[in-house]
Simulated assay, not measured.
Amino acid sequence: MKPYFSSREIRALMIFLPLCVLAVAGMRLARPKAGPAEVCAVAHEAERPADSVRLFRFDPNTIDYAGLRQLGLTAYEAASLLKYRAAGKVFRIPEDVATCYGFTDSLYFRLAPYIRIGRKYAVAPPAYRSERVVRQPLAPAPFLIDTVSALYLRAIGALSKRQAEALVRWRDLHGIRDMEELRECYVVSDSVAAALEPYVRFAVRHDPAAERVELNRADSAALCSVYGIGAKSAAAILRYRERLGGFRCVEQLAEVREVTERNYERIVKQIWCDSCEIQKIDINFAAPNTLMRHPYLPPRIVRKLLRERQLKGGWTTVGELVRQNILTEEEAARLAPYLRFGSRNDPGNDAASHGEALEMQERIY
């Protein structure tokens, strides 16, 4: 049987192995031995707190390792808390900190005064949840309804947030001049109005009857000064007045689409009409476009007028238009103040037609 090693290899191993043993023994002899104090320090390194201890308020859900060490925790205790969080645990109340592995009661009682659980993690008892807390309302004081804010109405407990905002929008759109108009707001109940009445104050305004606006001479600025007329409705009134030739009476203002029924009741108390300012149409000579522009002359009547005027040549009184079935008595009474008959320089025909128009209006109305 052939041997595993040759005689030469055996001699080399016998020399190499003693040399290795000597080298290892020399290295161990050359290494300095640790004293008992050093061995204790190494063994208890994880138990030694940080050199500078500083207690401060902290949230155990967000504090890092360095912060824990500054609080005086050992490396082992700080790592234990971080492992607790890494496992998906959340500190809901301060007492949860005491459940960390390695935390003693003395350590928890030392940290307890400084533990602050953030709102994101804390669990509040149902009786103290923020949505169930009813704030103490402010004591109401006299306030001006024209300038009061929705925030103040909420603060005194008069209305909810949505109701207060709705009241302010209503006031800005319609205006509130007295308690009656305040009660008209759909969010103000009778009980709320009764509670607010001792404190609500209304702005002092001039008597509109003492400073009435003449409707046929007023410009846009004068119309906007009337309570109940805004910029949009003022422009609509001026356009309608131009088409009409002027207002004969204040009731005609209700024919303007932009004037609501509620605002109309306010406006009529602040305006008056001078019927002498009406611009009349000479029905015997007016162009078709002029006739078509008038709101009281629909196309069917204009076609009849033009056809009969071409055949007959014209009219002298509004009664002739009724007798020829061009106008009904109601249409003639409404249109008569805006018509001229005959020559523009013949005042006699105008006086006769005006007298007939008044007689017809009295008969109808």
Rank of each mutant, 00 (worst) to 15 (best):
D51M: 11
A127S: 13
Y365T: 11
A166R: 15
P32D: 14
G355N: 09
D51N: 10
P288V: 12
I117P: 01
Q270P: 00
H354R: 05
Q279L: 11
I301D: 04
D146A: 15
S80P: 03
G246H: 02
V97E: 06
E77H: 03
F56N: 01
A87R: 14
E242I: 10
A37C: 04
P198W: 06
R28D: 10
S149T: 12
L223Q: 02
A166K: 11
V302A: 03
R92D: 08
E330M: 06
L107I: 09
C20K: 06
G355R: 12
L305V: 15
K232R: 07
D64K: 00
R212H: 07
F56Q: 05
V53N: 07
V322F: 08
Y365H: 10
A30W: 12
T104D: 12
M292S: 14
G102L: 06
H354Q: 12
A79P: 01
V256C: 06
A127W: 15
F58S: 00
F143T: 08
T317W: 01
G348K: 13
V192P: 13
N284T: 05
G355L: 11
Q70D: 00
G102I: 00
G314R: 04
S225D: 01
A231W: 09
C249I: 05
Y108E: 02
F109R: 06
S275D: 15
Y152A: 07
D146I: 02
P298H: 04
G35S: 12
G35R: 08
D346N: 13
K232I: 01
R85V: 07
L17E: 05
V268W: 06
G230N: 06
P337S: 01
G35N: 14
V97I: 11
K161E: 15
I145A: 05
V148N: 01
L68E: 12
R262S: 09
Y227H: 03
C20L: 14
N345M: 11
P126G: 07
L253D: 07
M179P: 01
L138P: 14
A86Q: 10
I117R: 05
R344K: 14
A218T: 04
Y296P: 01
